[in-house]
Nucleic acid binder design. Structure first.
Length: 307
DNA sequence: CAAGCGTGGAA
DNA sequence: TTTCCAAGCTT
């Protein structure tokens, strides 16, 4: 089989969607997909949704144990909705970005009240749920309900940037051009499109990785525009890195860690011990309260929210 | 639309 | 050691 390298071009000029990509990527997926619990049929739409929340900016390996605990304790949205949001925050553990736990709890409540306890399959209804954005709505509709959507996560964006556009990395923020390209590449058949979405994501996660892509194991290396161009290094402004040490985020993390472990309301002085700079400490705590992650009590103690 | 939001593993 | 980065969302 001869693969013709794709030359860099805009989606507007795609005379025909390069279906040459579909079969190799999907075949590779059939052979190499990881056996993840949220991909098994018994996960259901709720399992898929829980996994998508947890996987927002958190690696698979750290999600796995918490996912299992979560589904065992709250097998349906209504089970979670019946408990205080603080229990969601506590069970979230150290996955990071704990507002996601709060939003997942709020989403479970909305699903219970507005959708009879069943995760909606409608893209717009999904998008209306707390914590569900463009990516997560498409992912749930596609993975749980087999629908045809452009599922644009960081993995897919990187695969398309390289294989089709011919650059090492996608832009910092998702662009209209990327959405157009992803839509143009979507297989016509609904089930094939759903498979394609999962397959491109997995290819980005396992082979077409950010740092050291394993091109030797890539099913479309022969038609990759980036390789055809000589694998040029990223050109442009450096990708925005995140600092952490000394930030409010770090302080928030320390404060919340204390509250997660506590079985009773925590006195102010215990929280004061986690950070010595009082202005930043107060700002961080205020922020947690404002976010609804922490509940201040009349007596000056704090706990995870009951409401 | 850029900034803010956690955490830990790997290079 | 430092830096990068991991299935984003909200404001």
């Amino acid at each position: 089989m001869t693969l013709t390298p794709l030359t860099p071009r805009s989606p507007d000029t795609l005379s025909a969607p390069p279906a040459v990509l579909h079969a190799p990527v999907i075949d590779w997926f059939e052979a190499h997909a990881r056996d993840l619990p949220w991909r098994r049929p018994e996960a259901g739409a709720w399992g898929v949704m829980v996994s998508e929340f947890m996987l927002q900016q958190t690696p698979v390996g750290r999600v796995l144990p918490v996912y299992e605990q979560w589904l065992a304790r709250w097998p349906r949205p209504a089970d979670l909705a019946a408990e205080p949001p603080g229990e969601a925050v506590r069970t979230w553990g150290r996955l990071g970005y704990p507002r996601r736990a709060l939003r997942l709890h709020a989403a479970a409540s909305a699903i219970t009240e507005l959708h009879g306890g069943t995760v909606p399959g409608d893209h717009a209804a999904l998008l209306a749920l707390p914590g569900v954005g463009e990516y997560t709505a498409a992912a749930v509709a596609s993975f749980a309900y087999g629908q045809r959507h452009a599922v644009l996560d960081t993995n897919v964006r990187r695969v398309l940037a390289r294989a089709v556009t011919g650059v090492q990395y996608p832009p910092n923020a998702t662009t209209a051009a990327e959405r157009r390209l992803a839509r143009a590449l979507l297989p016509e058949s609904e089930p094939v499109a759903a498979r394609w979405a999962a397959a491109t994501m997995e290819l980005g996660a396992l082979v077409c990785t950010a740092r050291t892509p394993q091109c030797g194991r890539c099913p479309i290396a022969g038609s990759c525009a980036w390789r055809a161009a000589g694998s040029p290094a990223h050109d442009g402004p450096p990708r925005r890195g995140q600092t952490y040490a000394g930030t409010d985020r770090q302080v928030r993390g320390k404060l919340l860690a204390v509250l997660r472990e506590a079985v009773a309301p925590v006195p102010q002085r215990v929280l004061d011990a986690v950070w010595d700079e009082p202005v930043q400490r107060a700002r961080a705590l205020d922020g947690l309260v404002a976010d609804g992650l922490v509940e201040p009590l009349e007596d000056g103690t704090y706990r995870l929210p009951l409401t």
